[in-house]
Design a protein around this nucleic acid. Structure first.
Lengths: 338, 338
DNA sequence: GTGAAAGCGCTAACAT
DNA sequence: ATGTTAGCGCTTTCAC
């Protein structure tokens, strides 16, 4: 039988109400009793029952984490690292994270995640792009929601976003500083806000330098960014403009595809062409040469989201907040000075 | 205010006890009332409160998932896929999975996962190799524990294991069938049961065929298997025995290292050397040529573990069970007929 | 076969 | 500043 609040009360010679007040460090408790009770709690190693607490306080102490299954099953650890970030931060806030993957094409007919139907979460974190139908359903729920790495159609939610514009600039400026003047951009679904922002940063850097930017330098496909797409995009890009000396791929997966294509054409990286990616999700030794990229602090993003949820939950802070996390250039051997 | 058991009872014109009995499909309930109550539950969309249930039944409805943080943060999705498998299966058993990563070098001083200290789980799933100290602590806890992909020092626990011996045989036989007679094995930490079993399978296949197996064909390093290890191991292997025509690497990460080494030496794969890996965690288009490997059904392993925990929890089935999951050859272009 | 009622461990309103 | 107490929603004896 586990230690209950009664055991603590008895051992400390106070009422259970006092113990409860101490646990929530209520102001109207004398220093002395507080210390005394705390000592007993410590000694008995008392942990309050989450069920009992939940029953009376109508809080579960759980936070739901929603992710599309293709995002979770991706070989790149981007979203799983965000997930682990929420878990790490949750420890400090005494929450537990419940994961639920959903179909990427969530429709009107699909059920909401089980933890919502079960009323088993106090708030929800959504990572990555999800369907507007889901977003609408969530926002009609009066549950705090924090979006990570995606700007929901419903604008007044809290978000944790990557500074993609800055990242696009940083990547492009790196190439410019290395002396490149003919820089290709390879994007995925340009409708995706992250991709379009990275492209925006690229444009800004190019224009700031007064470099030429014919439309032949941009190649975007509608499909989901993936290596094969990167391969095909590179093929098209170089057929349009063979004079390119450096490529900025909108993410590492595409960059790998670009590298594969260039290698197949017998070109060397970085001697013939410099390549830079985005995300830093590729293990350094997987690809030869190691990929120069822009690092996204995935674990920290998860932590930030958890902090936001927690502040919404604890302070009844209803104002949506926006957190923008910085990115960082990671120089590796896939780029070189011209 | 959410629907409670009282609302259902009132609407169905029965007592709350009856509703509860129906929910647990108790035998002593007449068909008629059962149908009637079920209809009301359906109509009102009633979901019992997990807190209330937990309070009285002393069950949380949660299962803990323990993983070392380096396993979770690995770029290969092996353990994250196992994790998602437990989550998928948990839906059918009405459990929630709580994740907790721990340090790989869990010592006497380290705290047990928070969900255990909080008594917030009914059972625990442990994936991958963990320290004996943790295993001992867990087994002294009177919580059902299921181990995935690792044989705990404490032998009488339930386990979900990969048929590594069979996998080693399958991989080696594939190479033998292609005409290879001089086949190298590259292993990681041979102390690790998975690795040693794969090696065992390799030996069995080689010996069954009456092929020579000088000790020069085996190269095991003590370090954790990783690409750099694979690279260095290949270097040593080929310096000892330059006549090898095919390499069986104990996992995909090592295989990538082997491929990198061979490419650096100017050898072509599979024309000059065939390479086969194990695990199938490398995206097909990441490596050139696509890696032939032995697929481990990771998601299914997670599902099996959840089934075991659930059966232990629901049937008070105390007998430890062992589930062995089969592996499967995945033929891709990194091997060829001699 | 069904209902009444006790009680799980806790919080919070109200008493003192 | 601390104690008393009602009651959160459910399961589970025990009556009937």
């Amino acid at each position: 039988m586990a230690i209950t609040i009664k055991d603590v009360a008895k051992a400390a010679n106070v009422s259970i109400a006092t113990v409860s007040l101490v646990m929530h460090n209520h102001r109207r408790i004398s220093k002395d009793t507080k210390v005394k009770v705390m000592e007993v709690i410590e000694k008995l190693n008392y942990r309050p029952s989450r069920s009992a607490r939940g029953l009376v306080s109508r809080r579960t102490g759980n936070v739901g984490f929603i992710l599309t299954n293709d995002h979770f099953l991706r070989t790149e650890p981007f979203y799983t690292h965000i997930f682990i970030g929420t878990e790490i931060e949750a420890r400090d806030h005494d929450f537990y994270i419940l994961l639920n993957t959903i179909d990427s094409h969530f429709t009107e007919k699909d059920q909401l995640p089980r933890f919502i139907l079960d009323k088993n979460v106090d708030g929800v974190i959504v990572a990555g792009k999800v369907s507007n139908i889901l977003i609408d359903k969530l926002s009609s729920l009066s549950l705090p929601v924090v979006y990570i790495d995606y700007v929901p159609s419903n604008k007044n939610s809290s978000t944790v976003l990557v500074d993609n514009i800055m990242g696009g600039k940083i990547a492009t400026n790196h190439l410019i500083k290395l002396g490149h003047r003919n820089i290709g951009f390879i994007g995925g679904d340009i409708e995706h806000p992250s991709i379009s922002d990275r492209y925006k940063g690229y444009r800004q850097a190019i224009e700031a330098e007064g470099l030429p930017m014919g439309s032949n330098l941009i190649e975007t496909l509608e499909d989901y960014p993936a290596r094969t797409n990167g391969y095909n995009a590179a093929k098209r890009l170089f057929s349009i403009n063979p004079d390119i000396t450096a490529v900025f791929a909108c993410n590492d997966a595409m960059a790998l595809g670009v590298i594969n294509y260039l290698k197949d054409r017998g070109l060397r990286i970085p001697q013939d062409i410099s390549v830079i990616g985005f995300d830093d999700v590729v293990s350094e030794s997987t690809v030869d040469p190691p990929l120069c990229t822009v690092k996204v602090p995935t674990v920290e993003m998860g932590m930030e989201a958890m902090k936001l949820i927690s502040s919404h939950l604890k302070n009844f802070n209803g104002y949506p907040q926006k957190v923008m996390v910085p990115v960082e250039l990671v120089v590796r051997q896939s780029t070189r000075k011209l």
